[in-house]
Computed example of a mutant assay.
Amino acid sequence: MDQSEELSELISGIYDAALDASLWKEVVGKAARFVGGPGAAIFSKSPVAANGNLHCEYGTDPHYRQLYFDKYLALDPATTGQYFADIGQPIAISDLMPYSDFLETQFYKEWVQPQGLVDFVSAVLDKSVNNAAMFGVFRSEREGIADDEMRARMRLIVPHIRRAVLVSGLIDHKSAEAATFADTLDGLGAGICLVDATGRIVHANVACQVIFDAGDFLSAAGGRIVARDVKINQALQEVFAAAGSGDAAIGTQGIALPLRAADGACYVAHVLPLTSGARHIAGLAYAATAAMFIRRAALDTLSPPEVIARTYKLTPTELNVLLAIVEIGGVPEVAAALGVAETTIKTHLGRLFVKTGAGRQADLVKIVAGFATPLIA
Rank of each mutant, 00 (worst) to 15 (best):
V321S: 04
T356R: 02
T347P: 00
L272K: 05
R295Q: 12
G264R: 08
A336V: 11
V271R: 00
I225P: 13
L349M: 04
V365P: 03
P258C: 11
L257A: 04
L338D: 03
T301E: 10
I250N: 06
I232Y: 09
I345W: 04
H270C: 10
V321D: 06
L284Y: 06
L338E: 08
T289Y: 00
A335H: 01
T317G: 03
A288V: 05
K355D: 04
A285M: 12
G283K: 03
T289N: 00
V268E: 08
Q237M: 15
T317H: 11
G350N: 06
V340Q: 12
S276R: 12
E342W: 10
I345G: 03
K313E: 12
P332T: 12
F240D: 09
V271F: 01
D263V: 01
L302H: 06
L323E: 04
A220Q: 15
G251N: 11
V334W: 08
M292R: 01
L272T: 10
N233V: 11
A288P: 02
G222K: 07
T347C: 03
V268Y: 02
N320Q: 15
L349R: 03
V239H: 02
A242P: 07
G244N: 08
A288H: 03
T275L: 03
T275G: 02
L274A: 08
D263P: 00
R351Q: 14
D247M: 14
F293V: 00
A341G: 06
G251R: 09
G254W: 11
A221D: 09
Q253D: 11
R296H: 14
V226M: 15
D247E: 15
V307Q: 06
I345P: 02
V365R: 11
I325A: 07
Y286W: 14
V331I: 15
G359D: 05
S276M: 10
G246Y: 13
S276V: 07
R279N: 14
N233D: 15
L352Y: 06
Y267S: 02
V268H: 02
L272A: 08
A243M: 05
P332D: 10
R351E: 15
G330P: 00
P258L: 12
V230G: 10
T347D: 04
C266W: 08
A362C: 01
A265N: 06
A290F: 01
D247A: 15
K231Y: 14
G223L: 07
Y286T: 10
H270L: 09
A336S: 13
A262D: 09
A337S: 12
N320E: 14
Q234W: 13
H270P: 02
R260W: 01
K313D: 14
V307A: 05
S303V: 07
G359Q: 06
A341H: 12
A220P: 06
L322P: 05
I255M: 09
K313R: 13
V354C: 00
R310I: 06
E327Y: 00
A309M: 04
K366P: 07
H280W: 09
R360Y: 07
N320G: 13
